[in-house]
Design a protein around this nucleic acid. Structure first.
Lengths: 198, 198
DNA sequence: AACTATATGGCACTCTGTGTCATTATGGAA
DNA sequence: TTCCATAATGACACAGAGTGCCATATAGTT
């Protein structure tokens, strides 16, 4: 996509990167789905990707990151939606509308819904992957909290709301993945409905 | 406490257990707090407890279980409170009162608040321990969900409520641990307040 | 005393994740 | 072109988590 004829990437001197992390992650996702997550070692992935095991660890912090890493853009997009939020004062439950807007904006950031569904199903099936949710989803807590507190929500309430939101939304994504509906929006909306802001 | 003069424990034939798991967990908790969680190996714990490393793994599923295991009684007590819940039909937001009651019942099951606070502070400081929350807190989801659905809450809403509840309550416990108030009840009450059941 | 049942712990193994370091491949300067 | 600085690679070694196997130890039972 990048580095086409018009846009040339500025490269520093030094050996160029030989592998495409996204392709490797996709390969790993396929292998995990076929043979099982625990049954597949990092060396297996490295071998099939024609890459050294050490190199694999340079591009992915750990084994779970091969699966969770792909969720990064979605989470960032969802968090970034707060930056373009309109107001600073404190409307009543319009705050929840802002939350919903940000959450739904995350959907648009997903390049391939089918791949994401496969990723989430894999996560749902493996406790080790499931337990990593906070590690990645917790990224947006900071932004969500500041969004809430800036609109008049008390400090501690904002904390609990973030925690509840995070849990409910993740559950919604898992539910969407477990079913066959193409649009995750209804699931996310229903999850948001269990929160109370007043 | 048990096996006093009146109550005699029926013992199967075979070598008796030589270690006290609770004492070992308490020891581990102290060592972790002193030297750090990652910096302390299972072999370190085993050595100081005068126990083989293999034996340690027989009583604790993994390293995190040395810390999280102690939360078991609290979680069970909280879940058991649903069994003694009064009604089956569907009051309006009296359901939330039942939830609150169950949650507060968990507090009574804590033998030593100071130890629990230390445990939670340790958990809060270490991402690896923090990520295990679902693994242990998820135990009561089944019971909480059936409590909600039996009282008229739709299946999917109950799911999202459980997820939100779990996240918010855990955050409340962490907040209580981070502060110095002796009673965790107010924190839990505020966390419950972010939920909506209607 | 012999037998049975259970806990222990030593040993070896796989896998994860990290640190070290020589090697390799590039862009740029001489 | 040749040399050099730079950055990615992968081989090697290592510590620690977690598991399986098995000999040993300690109890109750016959």
């Amino acid at each position: 996509m990048l580095s086409n004829d018009s846009i040339t990437i500025k490269r520093s001197p030094g050996r160029p990167v030989t592998i495409d992390p996204e392709a490797v992650a996709a390969l790993a996702l396929r292998i995990f789905a076929e043979r099982g997550y625990e049954q597949t070692s990092m060396e297996d992935i490295a071998r099939e990707a024609h890459v050294g095991r050490k190199t694999l660890y340079r591009h992915f912090a750990n084994k779970a990151d091969l699966v969770w890493g792909g969720m990064g853009p979605v989470i960032e997009a969802s968090a970034a939606a707060f930056d373009s939020a309109p107001a600073e004062p404190l409307p009543a439950n319009a705050i929840l509308d802002g939350l919903r807007e940000a959450v739904l904006a995350g959907i648009a950031a997903i390049p391939d819904l089918a791949v994401t569904r496969g990723r989430l199903r894999l996560i749902a099936e493996h406790p080790e992957l499931l337990s990593r949710s906070q590690e990645y989803l917790g990224t947006r807590h900071e932004q969500t909290r500041s969004y809430l507190t800036a609109r008049g929500i008390p400090e501690d309430t904002a904390r609990y709301l973030c925690a509840a939101l995070s849990g409910a939304l993740f559950e919604a994504w898992l539910q969407w993945a477990a079913h066959d509906d193409s649009d995750p929006a209804p699931y996310l909306r229903r999850a948001l409905a269990v929160l109370r802001l007043g």
